[in-house]
Amino acid sequence: MPELPFTVESIPEEFQEALVAEPADLCVVYEPRNGWEFINAREIWRYRELLGFFVWKDIKVRYKQTFLGVAWAILQPFMMMIVFSIFLGRFLHINSNEIPYPVFVYAGLLPWHFFSAAISNASNSIVGAQNVITKIYFPRLLIPFSAVGAAVVDFFIAMTMLLFLMLWYQVPLSSQVVLLPIPILLSAVAAAGVGSLLAALTVSYRDFRFLIPFLVQVWLFATPAVYMSENVLLEEPSGNQSKNQSTSSTEPSPTMEGSGKTQTKDYILRRLVDANPMTGVVGFFRAAILSGPLPWHQLKNSTLSIAIITIVGLLYFRKVEAHFSDVI
């Protein structure tokens, strides 16, 4: 069949109207897809309403038939905060730089909790949406994105508790708070990238269902959410519980009391965790809201790794998404 050039005159009148109204809709082509494609922003934009509905559904469904309802969005990080305050703050006296430890840890856990909830939900989202995916077309990215979107809403709800805690402990709000959108946006992008990657992998390999909770747990310890990236290593070089984690601190530390071998090991670990996308985001978030020096250097590192991981994640997702309905 020769390819026919497409002009407005060539189509019947009743279709011409549609052409004017929705030109992008008019001609849809389905072809084999084997190449690499990046995010189709135009298409996502066209489906923005559906994205909204998916987010709304996620939130609506999550707290259905629960007694406490949306309060769980606050209670989850809040309870984590209590646990860490008792064990790390009270028993281990983790330095929190003059800030009451509960406020300090809650401010760190907030972006972390958002990120971990977003990637956990996103990674199961595609498999969970199996019946929709095999029956109808829409940009598949909407599904992990909507999981992240729902987590964003929870995040803002949980934010209110931080303000209460700051009032309670009389911690003044920093003027740097105007920079808050930066870490929030970055963590959302990171969650979308990582979430999409894990979601696509889970479709083919259900192994990730078991791997992801473990990954999230390890990632928490590699992120300075419950400790301070600068100080932990300096003050507790042979720290008991947080020993492994302290080595993962991102700031290059001065001399260690270990052998040269440990030092190189530490160095590698530090470089590795330097690349942790959440290190800069969490540190910057906390500094922006509770005052303190803004860790621009860490933020730069994190931004770079977020960019890489997001591009890889989205590319992989787009590569395999066409076959979701066959493989799932």
Binding site: I11, F15, A18, E22, D25, L26, C27, V28, V29, Y30, E31, P32, R33, I133, T134, K135, I136, Y137, A322, H323, S325, D326
Partner: peptide, 14 residues
Amino acid sequence: VTPPTAGRVELRGR
């Protein structure tokens, strides 16, 4: 929902 392995489908209209 699923792409063809070979060939091409064209749809004109919503």
